[in-house]
Design a protein around this nucleic acid. Structure first.
Length: 242
DNA sequence: CCCTGATTCGC
DNA sequence: GCGAATCAGG
């Protein structure tokens, strides 16, 4: 695999969004985590919150919160003081429903409301996590262990980078940057359009999609005579424009 | 052990 | 430029 502009763009975006190198490598495919890191550095995307802290940083982080902030004894060595911009928290972000209740009434013409869907469970302890389930997909597809085989490129590849700016009405929807191993990556809409997003439901464990979309992605073979023309979910192979 | 990113260095 | 190997912290 080579670093096409497209892939580089994906790398940049995901890297800046706080996705880990492993996640980026997996999303890109065909490259290792190291390759992603190496490329990121070569691109100058250097140094995000790294688990590895230098001794300088460690001391700074240690003394800073404790000591009075006014002290500010300028260290002889310019410690970068890495500012943790924003709050990445890439992994744990299930479904932030800070719905913009105010008015943004322009687009989303046929958007049925979902706000009555508000989460209940006022004090429900979210203790139960996926207990190594082995499920059988709805389409009758054969369940495979996650490591056994790469999932086939089922629907339109989520490769196509989402424009960084998504219409605010869909800001709470699952964007490329929200993708992780626990949520359904089934694309909805078309890349490049403002309402393009991903399903975002909880995945069928071991699969990149939720149970419902696994049923779309993995379909048991039918006898040929019973088979109809394939649905071509996204218009078939991408056309090259220009 | 697992994970993470950083760095090196042969290609 | 690339990325495996290696390093080093969590």
């Amino acid at each position: 695999m080579s670093w096409t502009d497209e892939r580089i763009d994906t790398l940049k975006t995901m890297w800046e969004a706080g996705q880990t190198a492993s996640q980026i490598a997996e999303a890109l495919g065909g490259v290792s985590r190291n390759a992603v890191i190496g490329k990121a550095h070569r691109l100058g995307l250097q140094s995000r919150p790294s688990p590895v802290t230098t001794k300088e940083e460690a001391r700074a982080a240690e003394s800073a919160p404790a000591a009075a902030p006014v002290a500010a004894a300028p260290a002889p060595k310019p410690s970068p003081a890495p500012v943790r911009t924003a709050a990445p928290a890439p992994a744990a972000r299930p479904a932030p429903p800070p719905f913009a209740t105010d008015s943004t009434p322009e687009a989303a013409p046929a958007a049925s409301e979902v706000d009555d869907e508000a989460e209940e469970a006022p004090s429900a302890p979210p203790v139960k996590r996926e207990p190594v389930l082995r499920s059988v997909g709805p389409g009758g597809f054969v369940r495979q262990a996650p490591g056994e085989q790469q999932p086939p490129i089922a629907p339109a590849p989520p490769r196509r980078l989402v424009p960084a700016r998504t219409a605010p009405e869909f800001a709470n929807k699952t964007s490329l940057l929200d993708l992780n191993d626990k949520i359904c990556k089934w694309p909805l809409g078309h890349p490049g359009e403002p309402d393009f997003h991903f399903c975002g439901d909880k995945v069928n464990p071991g699969f990149p999609y939720c149970v419902e979309h696994c049923g779309h992605a993995y379909q048991a073979q039918l006898p040929r005579r019973d088979r109809r023309a394939p649905p071509l979910p996204f218009g078939g192979p991408r056309m090259r424009l220009g």
